[in-house]
Computed example of a mutant assay.
Amino acid sequence: MNPKTTPAALQAQVSGSSFYAGMRVLPKAEREAMYAVYAFCRAVDDIADDQQGDRTSRHTALDAWRHDIDALYAGQEPGRAELVAEAVRHFQLDRADFHAVIDGMAMDVVDDVRWPDFATLDLYCDRVASAVGRLSVKIFGMEDADGVKLAHHLGRALQFTNILRDIDEDAAIGRVYLAREHLEQAGVDLSSPAAVAADPRLDRPARDLAALAHEHYAAAHAILKRRPKGHLIAPRLMGAVYEKILTRMEEVGWGPPRRRIKVNKAALLFTVARLWLLR
């Protein structure tokens, strides 16, 4: 086994992330599968965000991942995709979802995403977030009908929240993930990512996206409230924690200068304990 794909090595990659608490409450097999999926996502995300590499080399690196994923499903030598091999075998994960994640990262490589129309933004979120959710709900043991819907809604909700939290960091690398329609309606200056981030009118389009995020959180909560089959503490936790972050951002607004809202570790541990007791 590649030492980088052992459970301990994968856990080390995940331990610094905000998703770690949600993963560690899972049973061993599910937990290690989620570590592997997260490590895959981190690997391809690092390629997309590599500010030192040129676009051609980053495309080549993503294509290499596609090749390795295809080799894994064809029963050939999987190369770096070995890290998800056990998860794929154990939980029958869909190759299309791995490809979707890679395709989402490729959208950032083709050209830095800047104020896309909402349809393109939604496609991006489906690929980089809801596709990860579709892999996750299989690991959680959910049935397809509820699992796919939960992945759709919770994936969008979490990604919209991340977009709203990372406005300044994204603008610093030449990206703006807010929808063109919302920005234009507010009269925001679209001359550059820096101009968007500095525009005092940015609060309105940010709140437009926040409202959509709340709709997706509500839909996800409705699914989880029905108590469908599966290990549901992890998605419950992510929804609860990130919706609180969204609410805190709404309280302070998105007008510049902004301060980044962080996960409160004490509150996170309290939420984990509460969800565990109420499961």
Rank of each mutant, 00 (worst) to 15 (best):
I261T: 07
V137Q: 05
R274W: 09
L269R: 14
Q13T: 15
L93D: 11
F40C: 08
L277H: 04
I223F: 04
T6A: 12
H90E: 14
A198I: 09
F40Q: 00
A61G: 07
W65I: 12
A33P: 01
V110L: 10
A197T: 04
L212N: 09
L150H: 03
R175P: 04
I167C: 05
Q52D: 15
V101E: 15
A100Q: 04
F118C: 05
G75S: 12
L26N: 01
H153T: 13
E82R: 01
A131Y: 03
G133F: 07
V88N: 09
D63H: 02
V176I: 15
V137N: 00
D112V: 04
A61Q: 12
L277I: 03
G53S: 13
R260V: 05
T120I: 06
M249A: 04
P3K: 12
R279I: 08
D126G: 08
V263N: 04
A234Y: 04
Q51Y: 01
Q185W: 10
M23R: 02
M107Y: 00
G253H: 05
C125H: 00
L123I: 03
V132N: 05
I223K: 07
D203T: 06
A206T: 07
A220V: 04
A171Y: 03
R80F: 06
R42L: 15
H231W: 05
I102S: 02
D94H: 04
D170G: 10
H182C: 10
A145W: 07
W276T: 13
Q159I: 09
R259I: 07
V88G: 08
I139A: 06
A197H: 00
P116S: 06
W254N: 01
A240N: 13
R258Q: 03
Y20F: 15
I233N: 03
W276R: 11
A39S: 13
A179N: 02
E32Q: 07
I223Q: 08
V109H: 01
S18K: 08
L158I: 10
V84Y: 00
M34H: 03
D122E: 11
R95V: 13
V148G: 02
R248F: 05
P78E: 07
L209H: 02
V113P: 00
F270T: 15
G187P: 01
A145V: 15
A12R: 13
I261A: 04
L72F: 05
I245G: 10
Q76A: 09
A218D: 13
A119C: 01
N264Y: 11
F160C: 14
A29I: 09
A266G: 06
V176H: 00
K28L: 11
H216A: 11
L83M: 13
L123W: 01
P200W: 10
D111K: 07
K138W: 00
Y217L: 05
A240W: 00
